[in-house]
């Protein structure tokens, strides 16, 4: 028996979220008296694979098949399902991100396993296996019983945190049986934005809304993000107006994020926006309107003009960093 984690990498380095998944699976394995295995697909070196041991994986199945360097939903599913069978995995853990959303449901069908997606913590009961997931775009939580023998969990970002559980990871080469005819997607071109912090990976996010008045005023947001090592985001009207690209749109129909710190400048906090950001650990709101709903979600707030506050904030943070 084991718990299997899909350890996703980004350009050969594991994502922070991967370490969170291993930490989470380790806690599950303690309660279930079992061990954690991980499956890595792609080109990842041994030094990086060993890092999975730091968080509690005792075994790593390393798939280096070059046909799987880009994501193909069906063949990734086959690889993970074969690994789960080999490891006799009772729980398989994915991240609730684009890759997890693409593969976990397919694996669930292949293994006849119940799927709980967007889970926010460890099970509240193991018998029956009951777990809490987000519903209604974070406006409610659901208690879900997973009844099947094999269970699949996708964990919401930052729901558990990264915990070190030093173990030695035994790295094993694993070659899933995949025929060339199983691969249906051809990646023609990859356009990656480099040198920018990814919104879903960022610990700090600096976001602007209509109160920023226009795209020409984003310099302050970008500067603040740069000195904090943060990603930039925006509200829906801002991306709809074309002031910023839709990749930055956070909210119910955009990206759902959970950073440690979220700055909302000139964002009123419509319920759809809050749905995308309310899992942030700390929310700071700056808005001229004292009755803006964003203040109900915020931990700290300034009632004032974002355009005036941002430069002062930059100066104060620079001063803090200098000391």
């Amino acid at each position: 028996m084991s718990i299997l984690v899909f350890a996703e990498n980004w350009d050969g380095k594991f994502k922070k979220q991967t370490f969170e998944l291993i930490s989470y699976a380790h806690a599950l394995s303690k309660s279930m008296n079992t061990t954690v295995s991980a499956i890595s697909i792609g080109k990842v070196d041994d030094e990086e694979l060993n890092k999975l041991g730091t968080y509690g994986a005792s075994k790593v199945l390393n798939v280096t098949d070059c046909r799987l360097y880009t994501l193909d939903n069906k063949t990734f599913t086959m690889a993970i399902a074969q690994a789960a069978a080999k490891e006799n995995s009772k729980i398989i853990v994915f991240a609730q991100n684009n890759t997890g959303k693409a593969i976990a449901p397919r694996v669930s069908i292949r293994l006849k396993a119940g799927l709980a997606s967007g889970v926010i913590g460890l099970p509240t009961s193991y018998e029956p296996f009951t777990i809490v997931k987000k519903t209604y775009t974070s406006k409610a939580l659901a208690n879900v019983i997973v009844k099947s023998d094999v269970k699949i969990i996708t964990l919401s970002q930052n729901a558990y945190g990264i915990v070190e559980n030093p173990t030695t990871a035994n790295i094993e080469h694993f070659s899933p049986e995949i025929a060339d005819t199983d691969i249906k997607t051809t990646v023609i071109e990859v356009n990656k934005i480099t040198g920018k912090i990814l919104l879903n990976d960022a610990e700090i996010v600096v976001s602007g809304g209509r109160g920023m008045k226009g795209p020409e005023n984003w310099g302050g947001i970008e500067e603040l993000a740069q000195i904090l090592g943060a990603a930039t985001a925006c509200s829906r009207p801002v991306s709809d107006e074309g002031w910023r690209t839709h990749e930055e749109h956070t909210g119910q129909t955009g990206k759902i994020i959970a950073p440690n710190l979220y700055f909302a400048f000139g964002i009123s906090g419509a319920i759809q926006h809050l749905g995308g950001i309310s899992s942030s650990k700390c929310i700071v709101a700056v808005n001229k309107d004292p009755d803006a709903p964003i203040f109900e979600a915020a931990d700290y707030g300034i009632v004032g003009d974002a355009l005036k506050v941002i430069p002062e904030l930059i100066a104060a943070i620079k001063e803090l960093k200098a000391n």
Binding site: A140, L141, N143, V146, K147, V303
Partner: peptide
Amino acid sequence: LYTDFVSFDYPKAKASCKKVDPDNVK
């Protein structure tokens, strides 16, 4: 059915927002 949605809860309400004077960004 492999899963059973047994009940729902509301997310914990946030503690009230701590307001800072706009003239005291520090």
